[in-house]
Amino acid sequence: MNPKLTRRRFIKGVIASGAAATTTAAWYSATGQERPSGFVERLVRINVNGQVRNVDVEPQETLASTLRYKLGLTGTKLGCNRGECGACTVLVNDVPTYACSVLTHSFKNDRIETVEGLESANGDLHPVQQAFVEELAPQCGYCTPGQIMSAVGLLRENANPTRDEARHALAGNICRCGSYDSYLDGVMRAVELIG
């Protein structure tokens, strides 16, 4: 078994090639048409995890859709898709945001960070990720990327939160496994790791 050809990589490959094809096709359809002022162009550049990416974004597309299906960043999970669970939380200019409930077009000039962007260049996990691993905080793991992003957002704003402050900052993320305690333990450990 070739370890490089995992199922996840395969899916990502399919997504990437699909995105490339639609982008090229849409370049022609989306340009050269007269539109009323204020109308959005479909081809945009967005800054995701420090990289500027050219994407063909439909006007009504949510950020979560773009990240997952155009850029292959499937770490951002879709739970309810209604802003009621928090699994899709990403950071926009360091602010935790439900990617399912914002439009990609709204953030053309902003810095978007997903869970994929937290790992450092040398492969070290972000302290919050490391702390969550050490505390065995995730159970099923579906809400975990969102919990991580909320925690990272909190720690950037307040490097030394109390457990209660952490609880309020993470309050917009549901965990159906009920791992709230472990996530809070993880945040407190991350505070120590960052030192």
Partner: peptide, 24 residues
């Protein structure tokens, strides 16, 4: 549905454009 319906988006940058769009 998990996806948004096909719908246009306008991002007016100033008040006049926005009001004009809203009225139109």
């Amino acid at each position: 549905h998990d996806v948004m319906p096909d719908i246009e988006l306008y991002q007016p940058a100033d008040e006049a454009t926005a009001l004009d769009l809203a009225s139109r």
